[in-house]
Design a protein around this nucleic acid. Structure first.
Length: 565
RNA sequence: UGACCCAUGGUGUAAAGGCAGCACAAGAGAUUUUGGUUCUCUCGGUCCAGGUUCGAAUCCUGGUGGGUCAACCA
């Protein structure tokens, strides 16, 4: 197929799921149709691990000219909420995927699922059990030891039918009865030991309201839902591998269409936790400001931080899909967003830790306007003007009283280029005698070195960014670091938890200055602050009070060099 | 002391019995009005032991190591 087409198909290797799908297409299985689905439970916010699954499922649908459904597996009303449904849809759309008219809910199938249960009961393959949850757990045995059969296991079909009908009718209280499959109690696979199919929960469901008081277990809903939707390839994570025999059993006993389940290894990220429970704890216990805190690995957190959908999709693509456990280095995610933003983010000059610079031989007054390139990687982004004046701010780190040889920045007697402006020489500086802090640097400029002028290209070692003290606007800048200090927060010494390696320095607030061109920035606008990093306008930002989130810093070989020492 | 799954550079991921490749990370250099970008180069890998084969990362057997499974959660 691609063999005669070497031009556009550079023979990209297939992952193991694509190999299975292509084999199924080749052999004409399902009439060579490909239909996948993304099946979240609406009980929490989506994170980067879900993004992997979303990109995989929707990506496969697209690649093989198939379809991908969004289906909410909403079988537990006490844990689920419409808030989560909405956020999940928003996140999937933001990532750039479209389920078109195929938005489904497992709760759409409650009536059908109930019928399936009836089929099993009539076949003598399911029974109503009166044991408590504790009793069921105790009699289930252990992986190395068989369980014991429920005393209610041999009720007649008629009795089971009547009891199950009454369960639905609401005559029994929560927890008093369940419907169980009748498979056996000694399978080495715990999921096959007479698993619970239905439980009684008198709770209002976010979609079906109070219509039902019995709800199917996930295991009894998930596989059949895929079957109902004619999913060809049910892609899920590794921990559901042991559930597959059960799904297959249901499909076979009920006698319905069988999707093929394929399991892949979930994403783990270094310096991050990914479980819903832990993420929820971080929010509830106030370690972060909310689900969309820019330090969270949630999709909404990454969005607020300033990650782009393109960078996340590319990340999902690059990390690949396989069955072996993996921990992806966060630096790969950071690489992806840098790569994307380098091409698209306009450059701006901003000073985060201001140090006043006075150009002694520059006239006091309105100053002049300098021309700056918006994005050197993209000429179509054009140019802008930046005001220059006698008093400026530069970064404190860009001046040293007594610098090492390799310091290419400002120091007494040294020259640097002020980007898009002049070459200046440091003549002297003022130091606070009590604190030892440098408070002001005095320079002279060379008028012949104005950027763009014929004689301007004299070589100097360093180029600094700057803003005009007169014209710059104030901005709050939120600098984020990793939320955890340990590479694997899930693997802590005895007696400690992931919370013990939370990085207390994960957020630094600074008040800086930015060039006036950033004045009308809108929420989620992205910039590269020259020489610093990529920044995104926070949702709390307003024209009166600009707030920027640092998405990621620029690669920095200078501080790296310093650290080695 | 069970069943199932997995094992390739530091981290990911390719190689369908035939040259172990790519990306990130790390290191060196070139270019640069961003110590950014770009470019060049370097470092570094098939868990172990047998077997099959002209030939094994790949197939077989046995180890070892890791993961998953015992909610009326999903």
């Amino acid at each position: 197929m691609t063999e005669n087409n070497p031009k556009n198909e550079e023979k990209r290797s297939l992952n193991f799921i694509e190999e299975i799908i292509e084999e199924d297409i080749r052999t004409g299985k399902n009439n060579s149709r490909v239909h996948t689905r993304f099946p979240p439970e609406p009980n929490g916010y989506l994170h980067i691990g879900h993004a992997k699954s979303i990109c995989l499922n929707f990506g496969l649908g697209k690649k093989y000219n198939g379809k991908t459904n969004l289906r909410f597996d909403d079988t537990n009303p006490v844990k689920e909420d419409i808030e989560y449904v909405d956020s999940i849809m928003e996140d999937v759309r933001w990532l750039g995927f479209d389920w078109e008219d195929r938005l489904f809910y497992a709760s759409d199938y409650f009536e059908q699922l109930y019928e399936y249960a009836l089929i099993l009961i009539r076949k003598g393959k399911a029974f109503v059990c009166d044991m408590s949850a504790e009793e069921i757990a105790e009699t289930r045995g252990a992986p190395t030891r068989p369980g014991t059969e429920s005393p209610y296991r041999n009720r007649t079909v008629e009795e089971n039918l009547e009891l199950f009908t009454k369960m639905r009718a609401g005559v029994f209280p929560d927890g008093s009865k369940v419907l169980r499959a009748k498979i056996g109690m000694n399978s080495p696979n715990m999921h096959m030991r007479d698993p619970v199919l239905y439980r009684i929960i008198h709770a209002t469901h976010h979609r079906t309201g109070d219509k039902w008081c019995i709800y199917p277990m996930y295991d009894f809903a998930h596989g059949q839902s895929d079957s109902i939707e004619r999913i060809t390839h049910s892609i899920c994570t590794l921990e559901f591998e042991v559930h597959r025999p059960l799904y297959d059993w249901f499909i076979k006993e009920i006698g319905i269409y069988a999707p093929r389940q394929i399991e892949f290894a979930r994403l783990n990220l270094s310096y991050t936790v990914m479980s819903k429970r832990k993420l929820l704890e971080l929010v509830k216990e106030g370690y972060v400001s909310g689900w969309d805190d820019p330090r969270m690995p949630t999709i909404c957190g990454l969005r607020r931080r300033g990650y782009t959908p393109e960078s996340i999709r590319n990340f999902a693509d690059i990390i690949g899909v396989a069955k072996r456990d993996n921990v992806i280095d966060v630096s790969l995610l950071e690489f992806c967003v840098r790569e994307d933003l380098n091409k698209r983010a306009d450059r701006r000059m901003a000073v985060l830790n201001p140090l006043k610079v006075i150009i002694d031989n520059y006239p006091d007054g309105p100053g002049e306007e300098m021309e700056a390139i918006n994005n050197p990687e993209d000429e179509t982004k054009g140019k802008r003007k930046i005001p220059f004046s006698r008093e400026l701010f530069i970064e404190q780190e860009d001046f040293m009283e007594d610098p090492p040889a390799k310091f290419f920045r400002l120091a007494p007697g040294r020259e640097v280029r002020l980007k898009y402006a002049y070459i200046v020489r440091c003549e002297n500086f003022i130091k606070d005698s009590e604190t030892g802090k440098i408070t002001e640097v005095h320079c002279t400029y060379d008028p012949m070195t104005k950027s763009g002028m014929p004689n301007s290209s004299r070589k100097v070692k360093g180029t600094l960014h700057w803003v005009s003290a007169q014209y710059a606007i104030r901005a709050e800048v939120r600098l984020y670091e990793r939320l955890f200090n340990k590479e694997n927060p899930d693997d802590m010494p005895e007696g400690q938890s992931y919370k013990d390696c939370i990085n207390p320095e994960s957020l630094h607030l600074v008040n800086g200055f930015i060039e006036p061109a950033a004045e009308n920035s809108q929420v989620l606008d992205k910039y590269q602050f020259e020489r610093i990093g990529y920044f995104s306008v926070d949702k709390d930002s307003s024209p009166q009070n600009l707030i920027f989130n640092r998405v990621v810093s620029l690669k920095d070989s200078w501080t790296k060099m310093e650290k080695v020492k």
